[in-house]
């Protein structure tokens, strides 16, 4: 096992100790270089709200925020995430469980059914609205086309995000 630094060559079959900053909390994990960020969050940090729907970048179920930007966590290795700020769905509600406005809006507008795509859509939407609070409808639809949902037909999701945009 190498120490907590990613300098030098990390051998393929050795685990590296990493500190990940997830939702403002530092977590230490020990992973092989090949462990994806998604798997590290799920299996090593126990944060199973980040889902895997394809593991090749298309579905967006694994979307997390890296320094505020939406990123496919299945296409990043955990060793690449050592000094960035990671946000996952678990960090969205307040510690007492109160839903944030987007979560609340997804509930009100029926933006979820099975809920498997939901964490990815929440984080994607949060990033989109943070960057473009006045995003127009067409661009919002385009931005939300980044992720796949198999249940809702998207209308509930779009309505939910629009409502939050319009509430600001």
């Amino acid at each position: 096992m190498t120490e907590s630094s990613i300098t030098g060559l990390l051998e393929s079959d050795c685990k590296t100790r990493l500190r990940l900053s997830v939702n403002g909390t530092e977590r230490t994990v020990e992973v092989e270089p090949r462990r994806t960020l998604a798997d590290a969050l799920r299996d090593d940090c126990g944060l199973t709200g980040t889902h895997l729907g394809c593991e090749h970048g298309v579905c967006g179920a694994c979307t997390v925020l890296i320094d505020g930007n939406p990123v496919r966590s299945c296409l990043m290795f955990a060793v690449q995430a050592a000094d960035v700020d990671i946000r996952t769905v678990e960090g969205m509600a307040s510690p007492d469980g109160t839903l944030n406005p987007l979560q609340e809006s997804f509930m009100r507008h029926h933006g979820l059914q099975c809920g498997f795509c939901t964490p990815g859509f929440l984080l994607l939407s949060e990033a989109v609205l943070a960057a473009r609070p006045d995003i127009d409808d067409a661009e919002l639809r385009e931005a939300l086309s980044s992720n796949l949902c198999r249940c809702t037909g998207y209308q509930g999701i779009i309505d939910a995000v629009r409502a939050v945009r319009d509430a600001v």
Binding site: I6, T7, G8, L9, L10, E11, S12, D13, E32, P33, R34, T36, D39, E55, H56, F77, V79, Q80
Partner: peptide, 13 residues
Amino acid sequence: MKPAQFSYIAPET
């Protein structure tokens, strides 16, 4: 659908 093993290096220069 997980990658095969690899060694990893992230140089600074």
